[in-house]
Amino acid sequence: MSDPFICGVLPALVTPFRDGAVDEKAFVELVERQIAGGVHGLVPVGTTGETSTLSHDEHRRVVELCVQTARGRLPVVAGAGSNSTAEAIELARHAKTVGADAALVVTPYYNRPSQEGLYAHYRAINDAVQLPILVYNVPARTSVDISNATLERLSKLPNIIGIKDATGDLPRASLQRLECGSDWVMLSGNDDGGLGYMAHGGHGCISVTCNVAPELTSRFYSDCMAGRWVEALAGQDRLIRLHKALFADASPAPTKFALSRLGLCTDEVRLPLTPCSEAARAEVLAGMAAAGIG
């Protein structure tokens, strides 16, 4: 198929805070920086956006700000996940109402539904909201893993268009592409495995590193999509230490530290997260230096 409307690199945007509140000015400036850096889309209020500690009003406001700032220049994929199906539907409806182009819906965490429960969850959202939906599979955080067989069933529903795959299982990505068909959108959720995921037929990545290095990550994914694999390997080598460093402590604390060093926002995170350790800060600075940033 031709490239889907959601492809390339999309930053999993941080939600900047100042004195405990959402820093709307910094958020808008971060979005503009991403657009100027050549990214292919925007993802507010995902895991990296600390959605689990935002109030519902803050969550909705950040989505609105992102859509308003993007002004149609790039697709906005709004986080809309919950372990309550009714709440996920409400968040997806809000995303559609304010003009988001799609929603990212994580598999329900904590209550650990069966494969049939996962299918029913996403089918209910599909039936309730006429908005493209990306399934977000991140078993390390949710303690539930959606199978390729369930994804194949979901791929037949009109509004379930693809996946953010944070499993790190590259052979499964190839099998999923074959099972879900040529129209299934496949985005990685792991920066460090981006090169391999693209080689397995992926369409892009919802990226943490992109917050810090939008130009470099955009160039990397543009090279991958164009089949410039020698250039892409060089980009992977340049970024790999930064990819790793941004998870040297609980995310997004290292990313916010890096952004604070660039003068773009504070390094504030919300409890139960804390600012990253001195050891993690040293790794982030080394990763930034290796990438030629800062």
Rank of each mutant, 00 (worst) to 15 (best):
R71E: 15
T15P: 09
R18L: 15
K96T: 07
G292P: 00
N190E: 15
A232Y: 03
E87W: 04
P158I: 12
L170D: 00
D19M: 10
G49R: 12
P132K: 10
G46D: 08
I240V: 12
D223R: 11
L30R: 08
R241I: 00
N211L: 09
K156G: 14
E231L: 12
L13F: 06
G193K: 14
A36R: 14
G38E: 08
T217H: 00
V105G: 00
D165E: 11
D57Q: 14
F247D: 05
S260I: 03
I89A: 02
R241V: 02
H203D: 15
N190F: 08
D23F: 04
C224P: 10
L216K: 13
Q68Y: 07
V212D: 08
Q236S: 06
D192S: 13
R172F: 00
S52F: 15
H40K: 02
L175E: 08
I6K: 04
S143V: 12
I6D: 04
A173F: 03
G227C: 14
T217K: 00
T107S: 08
I133H: 10
L157A: 09
L54K: 13
G294T: 06
A149H: 08
E29A: 15
H203L: 06
G46S: 07
M288Y: 06
E152I: 00
N211K: 09
G41H: 07
G72W: 11
V9I: 13
S52H: 14
W184K: 05
G8A: 07
G37C: 03
L239M: 11
A80N: 03
Y119V: 12
G181K: 01
L246P: 02
G162W: 05
D192I: 08
S147T: 15
R71I: 04
V284T: 02
C265Q: 06
P214E: 07
Y221F: 15
L271Y: 09
D237C: 12
L273E: 06
A92M: 05
C205V: 15
R270K: 11
M198C: 10
R270G: 04
D249L: 08
Y122D: 05
D191Q: 01
R177K: 13
L239H: 01
S251N: 15
R261F: 02
R123M: 09
T97V: 13
Y136I: 05
A120W: 10
R228D: 15
Y136D: 07
N137K: 05
Q130V: 13
Q130W: 06
A289C: 01
A250N: 13
H121W: 05
I35Q: 04
R228M: 09
G204N: 12
P16R: 09
R261T: 00
A149E: 15
D19F: 09
S155H: 06
I206W: 02
P139H: 08
S2L: 13
G162Q: 06
L118A: 07
G41Q: 04
P108V: 03
L42V: 07
V284Y: 00
K164A: 00
L118G: 08
L262R: 10
C205R: 01
V138P: 02
L13C: 10
L42E: 06
S174W: 05
